[in-house]
Amino acid sequence: MIEFDQVNKTFTQRSATGRGKSVHALHDISLSIDEAEIFGVVGESGSGKSTLLRLINALEAPTSGVVRVNGVDLAALRPAEKRLQRRRIGMIFQQFNLLANKTVAANVALPLSLHRRRGMPGSNSRASTEATGRGSAETSGRGAAATSGRGAPRERALEMLDFVNMGAHAAKHPAQLSGGEKQRVAIARALVNEPDILLCDEPTSSLDSQHTDEVMATLLRVRQEMDTSIVVVSHELEVIRGACDRAAILESGRLTGVVDIAAPEARERFNSYSERARRYLEGGQQ
């Protein structure tokens, strides 16, 4: 559950010539995103979409107003708590942001190694739920792919790679993958900690339509099998319509509406490229 309550965000841009000028990235945003919802945010470039997303995992702090995630006001958290919060929220990016010098498997295992080393609470929730008889709500609410991840980081990473159909590529380096494959690896990495929330910033904007379909199909499976809330930011209306339950429309930092998406065939429309291409070419609805 994510809530924005009258959120404003102003950046001060430092110019080379001296005095900073203010940019109002978000104006008075109020909205709430439900659990296990796929929520879209559409808007043109510069409309504030990324800023809105980055407020959810406290990469940005609101200038005024409150952002709450699962009831917690992020502004009240100390820096270490903010980092902890971020570890419970997955994020994927337009440019995938994989580490070029690590293998696919090492990229996916990376978040796990950050956790273990710090011994942060939540880092070994898998071990502790096992110890307590796996009775927590977190465990029972999740699909098989997410809960079976009790082994070593590497096994867990391989499991997530299988989930995104990238198991065969574990030993490769990112440079050897296509864009769509990279993004699916990034999804595996974002999910390896079993986050409640997955944030996607223009996840398909550097992909062609076939790879877009693969990635969006993967996101739909994430929601179905893991009950993860997903927030997808994109300027591509078709992507948002194809995958989301609801979407917010941003224009120059203002929320101009939240719409329910009426796309009856939303669930199967990304299943196969050829299916979609045929339907489109034969004159069906795009």
């Binding site: 903010k82 902890l84 971020r86 990016f93 580490l99 950050l114």
Partner: peptide
């Protein structure tokens, strides 16, 4: 950006 988002 990635390190930040992972809470490093």
């Amino acid at each position: 950006e990635l390190a930040d988002s992972l809470g490093a």
